[in-house]
């Protein structure tokens, strides 16, 4: 299935370049931070890739900007905000929490809550803790099944 995305990647630009050592920050701790930030930012011209993974020209430029800001001493939030100010919500791979994404972020809790509620409602209906004994017909059918499953 990923071939679809791949076909796209090829259209999107010179994919599969490997990266350039000169892009990296000399300080490993800063480079680590820059990578973590870059993984949160979407490559605008690719499909669902972060700028760290993509080799499109724009992604490379944004990688460089992220590293410049990190080297200049910006906080992680400030670096993300810098890119967000220019490209909007679409660039954030972790969607910001707001009215239009409330249900998205609430999905795990909504799903769990709805499931629990349904289970509780269905159980409350009457909980004879002992199982209902089999009716004579069921008993006969069970016996037949045990003897010969084809019955």
């Amino acid at each position: 299935m990923r071939r679809l995305i791949l076909a796209l990647l090829l259209l999107a630009g010179p994919a599969f370049a490997v990266g350039s050592p000169s892009e990296m920050l000399p300080d490993p701790a800063q480079e680590q931070r820059a990578r973590a930030i870059g993984r949160e930012l979407r490559c605008m011209v690719c499909q669902n890739e972060s700028i760290e993974e993509s080799q499109a020209g724009l992604a490379r430029d944004l990688r460089l900007i992220v590293r410049e800001r990190v080297a200049a001493g910006d906080s992680d939030q400030a670096v993300v905000a810098y890119v967000h100010d220019r490209y909007g919500d679409f660039v954030l791979l972790r969607p910001p929490f707001r009215l239009a994404t409330a249900a998205l972020w609430g999905a795990p809790f909504l799903a769990l809550g709805a499931g629990l509620l349904a289970i509780l409602l269905l159980r409350r209906r009457g909980a004879p803790s002992e199982p209902v004994p089999l009716s004579p017909e069921e008993r006969a059918r069970l016996a037949a099944l045990e003897k010969d499953p084809t019955a």
């Binding site: 979407r42 679409f90 791979l93 972790r94 969607p95 998205l104």
Partner: peptide
């Protein structure tokens, strides 16, 4: 009418 991305971090 909002363009958002939902990616691996989410």
């Amino acid at each position: 009418d909002q363009k958002i991305s939902v990616g691996p971090p989410f």
